[in-house]
Amino acid sequence: MYESMFNKELVNLSINASSSDELFDFVGKDAQSKGFANSGYIEGLKKREAAYPTGLIFPNLQLALPHVDPEFVAKPFIYTARTTNSLEWLQMGDEKPMRTSNFLFLGIKEPSKQVGLLAAIIAAFKDEDFIKAFLAADTNEAMEKLLVNKFTQVAA
Results as ranks from 00 to 15, higher is better:
F6P: 08
D25W: 00
E9W: 01
L10P: 07
I15W: 07
S19R: 08
L13V: 12
L13D: 13
N7V: 14
K29L: 13
Q32W: 00
S33Y: 00
D30L: 13
S33G: 03
G28W: 06
S18N: 10
D30K: 15
A31Y: 01
A37Y: 11
F36N: 01
K34G: 03
A17F: 04
S18M: 03
L13S: 11
S19Q: 10
S19E: 09
F26I: 02
S33D: 11
L23R: 06
E9R: 15
L10W: 02
K29D: 15
L13A: 12
E22A: 15
S18D: 09
F26H: 15
A37E: 05
S19T: 14
F26P: 00
G28Q: 05
K29W: 00
E9V: 02
K29F: 01
N12G: 04
N12Q: 11
V27N: 03
N16G: 04
S18V: 07
F6W: 02
N12W: 02
D25C: 01
N12R: 09
S18F: 08
E22W: 09
F6S: 06
S20E: 13
L23W: 07
A17C: 04
S19D: 07
A37G: 09
N16H: 13
S18E: 13
L10I: 10
S20K: 12
F24G: 09
L23C: 05
K34D: 02
K29T: 12
